[in-house]
Each structure stands twice: as structure tokens, then as C-alpha cells.
Amino acid sequence: KRPMNAFMVWSRGQRRKMALENPKMHNSEISKRLGADWKLLTDAEKRPFIDEAKRLRAVHMKEYPDYK
């Protein structure tokens, strides 16, 4: 299984929150909104998620060195 990218790290928490706030919203609509919201974030706002994704990638490479 591939490590999560920055968007996936960020959206994991946001998806739960949005689903709780909008229980009747379909998952596909939540995904569209999350994508739009992510694009509106500044680089500074994205930085912690980018850093976490880099950390996850490094751990994955160490655990699965032959993964392609």
C-alpha cells in the first residue's frame, strides 16, 4: 500500500468532519468539496501536511525498500 500524499493526510480529518456536518452528503460530493478546499489553502497552510507526507514516504521506503 502506498504512503498517503499531503492531500490524503489533510483530507483524512477533514472528511470525517464534513461527513458529520453533512450526514446526507454523498462521498463523491465530499471528495469534490475537499479537493476545492485544498486548492484554496496557502502553501503555509499545506506545509504541515506536506511534511507529514514526506515523513510517511521515508518510513515507507525504509520498511519496503523494493516497493515500486
Rank of each mutant, 00 (worst) to 15 (best):
L40W: 01
S28L: 05
L41W: 01
S11R: 01
K17W: 02
Q14A: 12
P65G: 12
Q14I: 09
N22V: 04
K68S: 15
R57K: 13
F7D: 01
D66M: 12
M61D: 15
M8R: 01
K46G: 00
V59M: 12
M61W: 06
E45D: 07
A19Q: 14
D66A: 12
G35D: 15
Y67Q: 15
K17V: 06
Q14N: 08
L20H: 07
D43M: 11
L56Y: 02
A58I: 06
L56D: 08
P3A: 05
D43C: 06
R47L: 10
W38C: 05
W38V: 01
R12H: 14
R33F: 08
M61N: 12
S28R: 06
R33V: 07
L41N: 00
D37S: 11
L41S: 00
I30N: 02
R57C: 12
D43P: 10
R47Y: 01
R16Y: 01
A53K: 00
R47F: 04
A58M: 11
D43H: 09
D43F: 05
N5M: 02
P48C: 00
A44T: 11
T42S: 13
R2P: 09
N27M: 10
M25L: 10
F7M: 03
E45L: 02
R16N: 14
W10H: 03
L40I: 06
M8G: 09
V59W: 07
K68R: 00
M18E: 10
W38S: 05
Q14S: 06
R57N: 15
N27W: 07
P65Y: 11
R55H: 09
K1Y: 12
L41G: 02
H60P: 13
I50M: 08
H60W: 11
A53E: 08
H60D: 13
F49W: 09
R2W: 06
L20M: 12
V9Y: 02
I50E: 15
W10C: 12
R2T: 14
S28P: 02
L41H: 01
R55Q: 10
K54W: 03
N27T: 10
K39A: 11
H26I: 01
L40R: 13
P3F: 05
M25R: 00
T42M: 04
L20N: 08
R12W: 11
R47D: 05
M61Y: 12
V59E: 14
K39G: 09
K68D: 13
P65T: 14
E45K: 00
A44R: 06
L41A: 02
R55L: 09
S11D: 05
K62M: 10
R55E: 08
H60Y: 12
Y64A: 15
R16P: 12
Y64V: 15
E63K: 07
K1N: 10
E63P: 09
H60T: 12
A44L: 08
A58D: 15
A53M: 00
R16H: 15
W10T: 04
I30F: 02
R33M: 07
K39T: 06
H60G: 14
D51L: 08
N22W: 04
N22H: 11
M8Q: 15
K1C: 08
S11F: 03
F49C: 06
R33A: 10
V9D: 05
I30T: 05
K39I: 01
R33Y: 02
R16D: 15
P65F: 07
A58N: 04
Q14C: 01
Q14G: 01
K24W: 06
I30R: 02
H26Y: 02
A19G: 06
R33P: 04
P48I: 02
Y67C: 14
M18T: 00
K1Q: 03
M4T: 10
Y64R: 14
R33I: 09
P3D: 14
P48F: 00
I50R: 10
L40Q: 13
A19D: 09
V9L: 15
H60V: 10
M4C: 01
K54I: 07
Q14P: 01
A6N: 05
E52Y: 01
H60S: 14
L41P: 01
E45M: 02
L34D: 04
A19W: 02
P65W: 11
L56V: 07
P65M: 14
R55Y: 04
K46R: 11
F7A: 04
N22T: 04
L40M: 12
K62H: 11
S28Q: 09
Q14R: 06
E45V: 04
N22S: 06
A53G: 02
M61G: 13
F49S: 03
A53F: 05
W10S: 05
S11V: 04
K62I: 05
N27E: 15
E63D: 12
Y64H: 14
V9M: 11
P65V: 10
V59H: 10
N27H: 08
E45W: 00
S11H: 09
E63V: 06
Y67T: 10
S28T: 12
K62F: 06
A44Y: 06
K62Q: 08
D51G: 02
G13L: 13
D43K: 04
M61Q: 13
F7S: 01
P48A: 03
E45Q: 10
N5S: 13
D66I: 03
W10G: 01
K24E: 15
